[in-house]
Design a protein around this nucleic acid. Structure first.
Lengths: 252, 252
DNA sequence: TCGACAGCACTGGTATGGCAGTGCTTGAAT
DNA sequence: ATTCAAGCACTGCCATACCAGTGCTGTCGA
């Protein structure tokens, strides 16, 4: 049986995506790509107009995004693009590392030639890759494939939910501080260790690989502090967009 | 001017829970406690009537529960209490184990006398405990405390989201197959190892402790197979409740 | 007896209107 | 110059109405 690596979840009838799904993807894209900066107001009304939908699907999408940690909903006040919280990023990193490193054991046990070939294909594509923006999907595919081989692909959703903040940090710090080639080299090292059954080595290598993200993070924070939750201080209020002036009572 | 009315305790105003939150908690309770069995229909309309709310907050609660894996929403068909999926439970167990075991390292490093005392308090309460239903909150408190000591309390949400299926399995199999006292003894063993800095021992003990849940799971599945997703076969359709008969065209 | 089929009672998905809460604007009073 | 309170433009929250999709019911024809 083919475990079916790529994420085509339902083999059953393909239902067209609901408006809620469309709104979710669209808004998520806005946030992750940085088109709407952290702290920006995301008004249900405004988004509904922009997406040419009613408020209901937009509202539900925002609810889901809030649960994913990408949006802060403040009742009766507004929904805002959440700031990147360094602690959240660190926790996400911790969760991800814990899961992926733990999965290596089963990965080593289940390793076969075919799986090696499938992973090799991904690695080859990564080596072709020069643009960072193209690299991220491939990176994701690689890590997901390792989980799938370990028989823990379902656990990817747990990684995913923790990864929201992390991805955004990576995306926004797009300039990148570590060359792609080094990441690919990391990947290859891990795969070789797994293929040769050196579990401990694979663990150390994967751990080191994942932790580089944190080093990048510190550089990103230094370079673009406005993306991060202000430590405290005078409670910087996120700027509301220009507002129509209030008219005093004078219908003339 | 009166600065603040007497009796308004905290600086930040405690906002009353929204109807959506109420609906969420209520429905979650229904599911986790087994009042609505896996496969049961959860109609938005019906729930709205029962909770004396409109459909909107109920619908949003269902949306969140669906994301937590407790509800299956099938568009234009119905929302159903999800079956317990053994694979999901195993994945949840894997995620939980990965996170908690990984946190032990920091836990050992950060261990202090006060923290030992706090944990000891929880353990003492657990030893007083005879009723399983009272034990679960204490169990949760213990595991959460360990994460907190490790400085990874935020990661608890990741555990939590994976824990939905797991908790339900435990709750529904309430008869319990392993005495509470043994669980507490496990806890105490882990704490002692941590306190004495024996990291590897603590890891092994915690791992073993968590895996007992899986053994219970198999017994639960054997005893109450109807709670679990039917393997395949003739696509057992979840029974719809009685339905008002269709009248043929005859207004008389 | 049995299969095809039309009708309709349900479902969740979407659109929209009204509401109370919140904080900015504003201008009068200090 | 500063304080303060009223007004109102916004917010998200909730209620309600309508829609298309789905599958059970019950009848009819072979």
């Amino acid at each position: 049986m083919v475990p079916s690596l790529p994420g085509t979840p339902p083999p059953s009838a393909a239902r067209p995506p609901s408006n809620r799904d469309l709104a979710y993807e669209h808004i998520r894209e806005l946030i992750v790509r940085g088109d709407e900066a952290p702290g920006a107001l995301l008004s249900e009304n405004d988004l509904a107009l922009r997406l040419d939908l009613s408020r209901t699907p937009v509202r539900e999408a925002l609810l889901l995004l809030a649960q994913a940690g990408l949006v802060d909903i403040r009742p009766q006040r507004g929904s805002y693009v959440s700031f990147i919280d360094p602690d959240m990023v660190r926790q996400a990193q911790f969760v991800r590392e814990a899961i992926e490193v733990a999965s290596l054991e089963a990965c080593v046990e289940n390793w076969t030639a075919e799986q090696g070939a499938a992973v090799e294909e991904i690695l080859a594509a990564q080596e072709e890759c020069t643009d960072r923006e193209d690299f991220y999907p491939l990176d994701e595919k690689f890590h997901r494939a390792l989980l799938a081989i370990a028989g823990h692909e379902t656990a990817w959703t747990a990684v995913q939910s923790a990864k929201g903040h992390l991805d955004r940090a990576r995306y926004l710090g797009l300039s990148g501080y570590r060359p792609i080639a080094e990441y690919v080299a990391d990947h290859r090292r891990v795969v070789e260790s797994v293929a040769e059954g050196r579990l401990e080595a694979a663990r150390d290598e994967l751990r080191a690989h994942l932790r580089f993200v944190l080093e990048d993070l510190e550089r990103i924070q230094a370079a673009r502090p406005e993306l991060f939750r202000p430590a405290a201080g005078p409670e910087r209020r996120p700027a509301r967009p220009a507002r129509r002036p209030a008219r005093t009572l004078d219908p003339s």
